[in-house]
Design a protein around this nucleic acid. Structure first.
Lengths: 158, 158
DNA sequence: CCGTATCCATTCCGATACTG
DNA sequence: CAGTATCGGAATGGATACGG
C-alpha cells in the first residue's frame, strides 16, 4: 500500500478498518462480490482494473479473511473468491456508501438506480443507527463520537 | 489522486462515492470533523499526516462540498473546516466502518472502546438497513443488490 | 499557528508480454 | 481463462524549509 504509517494498530476501529479496506479497489471488489462476481475475470472485467493490481488486492483480501478461496463451482480447475462472514459484515458500509452516492454524487436531473430489494422488488429504506433504547440516531446525528479519543488530556502537569 | 481512471461518471453510486472519499485520508479527516476537529493543526496532529497531503485533501473535500470553510470562531485570522450537510451524510458510512472495525479488526482479548452515545452515555445498537415495509435487511442480508448492474445481458444472439 | 513549496524514496496504476 | 512478471509514468508519503 501507499501509506507508510500503518494504521493496523491504531487505537481506533475506523482507522483499522480503513487500513484493511480503505484503498481504492478493495471496496469495489467487495461490492462485486456481494453481487455474483466470483471469478478473477469477472472482477477484472467489471472493474477494468489492471490484472496485477487485482491479483494483489484479492490476495490481500484473502489474507485478511475477507474473501476466501473456494474450488470452482463449475468444472474449471481455477478458484473462486467468495465473501467470508467478516467480508459480509461490510454490507452496511457499502450500503451506506451507496445511499450517500445516490443522494450526493449525481446531478439534479441525472437518472440513477435506487437500492432495490431483490426479493420484494421494492426500494429499501434508509440506514438507521439505533441507540440501545431504540432511539434512531439517524444519519445527521452527531452525538455519537466516531473517533474514540476521549478528553484523555491530563489536566495536571507532569 | 492515484487512480488514473476516474470513477466520477461511473454508473454506480458506490463507485462515485469512492471516487470522492475513497482514498486513505479523506474518511479519517471526516471522522475527526465529526468530533471536534476544525483547525488545520488539529487534523494534522490527530492524523499525523504530512501537511502537504492534508492541505490537498482539505482542498479537495471543500471543492466537493463535503467540508466548507468558515471564519475562525476564536479571534484568529485563519479558517476552519466544518462539515456541510453532504459531509454529515457520511455519518452512516463511518459508523459502519467503526462497527466493522470493532468486530473484526481487534484481537480476541484486545480491549477496544464501544460506540457510545454522548448524550445518554449508553452504547448504541447496530446499524440496520430497513426495507420499505419495515423489514430489517440486516448486515448479513445479501438480497439487496449493491452493484446496480441488472442482468442487462441480452439473451438473444446478435 | 497556518499553509505552500520542494526533495526524494516508495508505491501504485496501467499496459503489455508471458506461462499454464 | 487465470495469474504472474515487468516496465514507465504518476502520485503519494514524509520531512523540511519557507513565507503569511
Amino acid at each position: 500500500m501507499v501509506r507508510r504509517t500503518s494504521l493496523k494498530e491504531a487505537d481506533c476501529p475506523v482507522a483499522r478498518a480503513l487500513d484493511a479496506i480503505g484503498d481504492w479497489w478493495s471496496l469495489l471488489i467487495i461490492r462485486d462480490a456481494f453481487s455474483e462476481a466470483r471469478r478473477f475475470g469477472e472482477f477484472q472485467k467489471s472493474l477494468g482494473v489492471a490484472k496485477g493490481i487485482l491479483s494483489a488486492r484479492l490476495r490481500n483480501l484473502v489474507e485478511l479473511g475477507i474473501l476466501e478461496i473456494a474450488p470452482a463451482s463449475d468444472g474449471s480447475a481455477y478458484q473462486e473468491y467468495v465473501l467470508t462472514e467478516k467480508g459480509r459484515g461490510l454490507f452496511v458500509v457499502i450500503a451506506g456508501l451507496r445511499q450517500w452516492g445516490e443522494e450526493h454524487c449525481y446531478e439534479p436531473g441525472e437518472p440513477h438506480s435506487a437500492l432495490i430489494d431483490n426479493e420484494t422488488r421494492q426500494p429499501v429504506g434508509r440506514l438507521e443507527l439505533r441507540s440501545a433504547d431504540g432511539r434512531v440516531l439517524g444519519p445527521l446525528n452527531t452525538s455519537v463520537r466516531l473517533n474514540p479519543m476521549p478528553p484523555a488530556k491530563p489536566s495536571g502537569r507532569p
